[in-house]
């Protein structure tokens, strides 16, 4: 559940979600659920030439299983905190 609660803390921030079909969508993180399904608002597609149909989209729901990467705002990440939390959870503590 670590990444779920971690992403919940990022709600309202600007992220870029890269899908397994190479589509990258930038937008404001609106919500995330336990399956890491992601809702974005004020979206824009990074590579607009490749996906012209996404131009018209301003908000979207992305299935968690098709997400490859989520690019986070640099100041939205407390690296030390995340590192510690990951270790704790990995060791079952």
């Amino acid at each position: 559940m670590l990444f779920f609660s971690y992403f919940k803390d990022l709600v309202g921030q600007e992220v870029t979600v890269e899908l397994k079909n190479d589509l990258a969508i930038r937008g404001t993180l609106h919500s995330v659920d336990q399956y890491l399904n992601i809702k974005l608002e004020n979206t824009r597609v990074v590579d607009q030439d490749k996906y012209p149909h996404m131009l018209s989209v301003r908000n979207c729901f992305i299935r968690g299983s098709v997400v490859r990467y989520v690019q986070l705002p640099p100041d939205g990440v407390d690296v030390d905190l995340l590192h510690d939390a990951a270790r704790r959870e990995a060791r079952g503590g």
């Binding site: 079909n21 589509l23 996404m54 989209v57 301003r58 979207c60 992305i62 299935r63």
Partner: peptide, 8 residues
């Protein structure tokens, strides 16, 4: 994979 409202 994805769904969205398209209004443009």
């Amino acid at each position: 994979s994805l769904h969205a409202v398209s209004r443009d």
